[in-house]
Design a protein around this nucleic acid. Structure first.
Length: 92
DNA sequence: CAAACTATTCAGC
DNA sequence: GCTGAATAGTTTG
């Protein structure tokens, strides 16, 4: 656990639903713009993998990159989250 | 497509 | 403690 990792968690948690950020983007926000690789390693080794929306963090070209539950699930989660947002908006 | 760069973690020493 | 290898990436040639 390092300060770098701590920043990453905070930043990733700050990503809005239905949106994606690149590893590079998170790394830059964390203060190490060249540590995109470290971001991925830290995210997969994060202490609370379930409360950290790792599926919102993707590669620069919007590619999924990698995911514990499968890259496919990652994209599906993004889609479901977006739809869920619409559902919440439509509620009265 | 292959190589270099990067920060973190793990295994050996 | 330090070194070397590995990793859910990015950039450059």
């Amino acid at each position: 656990m390092t300060e770098f990792a701590r920043r990453i968690y905070k930043i990733v948690l700050d990503i809005p639903l239905g949106q994606t950020r690149s590893y590079k983007w998170v790394a830059a926000k964390a203060g190490r713009p060249r540590a995109a690789r470290s971001v991925g390693t830290i995210l997969k080794n994060n202490p609370l993998p379930l409360i950290i929306p790792c599926h919102r963090v993707v590669k620069s070209n919007k590619d999924a990159g990698g995911y514990v539950y499968g890259v496919k699930a990652k994209k599906e989660l993004l889609k479901l989250e977006t739809e869920m947002l619409g559902c919440l908006r439509n509620r009265k």
